[in-house]
Design a protein around this nucleic acid. Structure first.
Lengths: 204, 204
DNA sequence: AATTATACTATATATTTATACAGTATAATG
DNA sequence: CATTATACTGTATAAATATATAGTATAATT
C-alpha cells in the first residue's frame, strides 16, 4: 500500500463517511458535492489514484461501484470461532472443529484473544470454569505460573493451571479435588502449550 | 416490523450477500440475475414491499440506493452498565452505582439482558460464579425454581439459587457449603426479585 | 530542464439504472 | 365474492452515472 496524499485521504474519508451514512458508496458527483469540487473528473482522477495505490476497488461500468479495501470497521466487531475441545489433537481452527462463530468486540477481555474453547468436564470447577463454558484463548507461549493454560500432552488436550516447579518439570494442576495433578517431565514427555485463558463466557 | 414472506426474505438475503461480496448494493437487474427473475419490475415490487415493511430503505432516484435497516446490527454492540453490588439497597442504574460501561452485542447470551452485576463474595462459588465476575442480569419477575436470581431481602442484595418450597416459602440457596440457606417467609419478610442471571463474563 | 504526479475546471456522451405503465396469475382475507 | 397482497413478465424512458477528452496550474523528481 503506497503513500496516500492528504487530498486523497480526504476523498477516502469522504467515501467511508458516505457509506456509513447512507449504506452505499457515493457517485463522482456526490464526492464533488461533499468536497466542493466543480468537476466530476476531479473525483474520477482521485478515485483512479486511490485504486492504483490499492486503497479502493472500482467495479468498471457499475454505478457507485466503489468499495474500500481493508476497512477498519470489519475489525471493529470481530468474529471469533468457538472450537470444541477435541479429545485427541489440538483444538484447531479447521472448519470441522468450529462449532459456531461468536461476535465479540476485540478487546472484550482487556487483552487480545484468538478463539473460544468450549469446556468439557469439570476439572477446573473450583476456578469457576464449568462444563460448556467458553474460555477466551490467547495463543501464546508466554506463560506465568498460575496461568490457566490450554495444553496438549501426547495427543490429550486439557485446561489446567500451569506451574513450573523445576526447569524441566511442569505441573498441570486441576481445580477440583476429584482430579489429580499431572506432572510433566519435559525431558521425557512432549508438552505443547496452545495458549492461555484470558476470559470466560457462560451462556446460561 | 411486519412479517416477511419467504420470497421477500430471499430478496433481502440476496441484497445482504451482494453487499458483503461487492461492498455496494445491487441494482434491480442484479437482483434479477441472482434470483432468476426476468423482469426488473419483479425486483422493484419486492423492494417496495420490503421498504413498506421496514426491512430496507430506498433512496429515491439514486442508483443502488438500497440500505438494509438492520436494527440488530446497530444494536450489535450495545452499551451495558456494570453495576456494583451495593450492600444496602438494590443495584440501581443510577450513575453513582455504575462502575463502567461495557460494550457487548445485544444477544450475546441468547436472551436479552439489562446490565452487568459485579459479583462480591463467593456464595455461588460451586455454580462457577467467582468474585469479580460479571453476571448478565435480566430484569424480570418470571423466575423458575433453580434460576440464579438477584434478590433483595430487607435492604440486603444477594445472588442465589431460587427455590419456592411452598406458596409462601422461598429458599435462596447458595452454591457454597460455607454459606447457609436463606428461608424467606413471604408473609413475614419482604422479598424483591431484581432479576435473574442469564450469563456470565470473567475478565481474567 | 524535462518529466511525472497531483489537483483541479469544463464539456460531452454512451451506458446504467430507477421506475412507471400494462398485463397475467394465484393465494389469502374480509 | 370482491379486494388485497404476492409474484411474476415485458416494454419503455427519463434521469443518474461512469468515463473519456481537452485544458490549466503547481510541486516534486529525475
Amino acid at each position: 500500500m503506497k503513500d496516500i496524499t492528504p487530498q486523497q485521504q480526504k476523498v477516502l474519508d469522504c467515501i467511508q463517511v458516505y457509506i456509513n451514512k447512507t449504506g452505499f458508496p457515493p457517485t463522482r458527483a456526490d464526492i464533488c458535492r461533499e468536497l466542493g469540487f466543480k468537476s466530476p473528473n476531479s473525483a474520477e482522477t482521485h478515485l483512479r489514484a486511490l485504486e492504483k495505490k490499492g486503497f479502493i476497488s472500482i467495479e468498471s461500468g457499475a454505478s457507485r461501484g466503489i468499495s474500500i479495501n481493508n476497512p477498519e470497521i470489519t475489525h471493529l466487531e470481530n468474529e471469533y470461532p468457538i472450537v470444541g475441545l477435541v479429545a485427541a489433537g489440538s483444538p484447531t481452527l479447521a472448519s470441522e472443529n468450529v462449532e459456531k462463530i461468536l461476535n465479540c468486540p476485540k478487546n472484550f477481555f482487556g487483552s487480545d484473544f484468538d478463539y473460544f474453547l468450549r469446556v468439557r468436564g469439570l476439572s477446573m470447577k473450583d476456578a469457576g470454569i464449568m462444563e460448556d463454558d467458553l474460555i477466551a484463548v490467547k495463543k501464546t507461549q508466554e506463560i506465568k505460573n498460575g496461568d490457566i493454560v490450554i495444553a496438549r500432552i501426547e495427543d490429550e488436550v486439557t485446561v489446567k493451571y500451569f506451574q513450573r516447579s523445576a526447569p524441566n518439570i511442569v505441573h498441570l494442576k486441576p481445580a477440583n479435588e476429584e482430579f489429580s495433578d499431572i506432572e510433566v517431565n519435559l525431558e521425557e514427555t512432549e508438552l505443547y502449550i496452545e495458549g492461555k485463558s484470558v476470559g470466560l463466557i457462560r451462556e446460561s
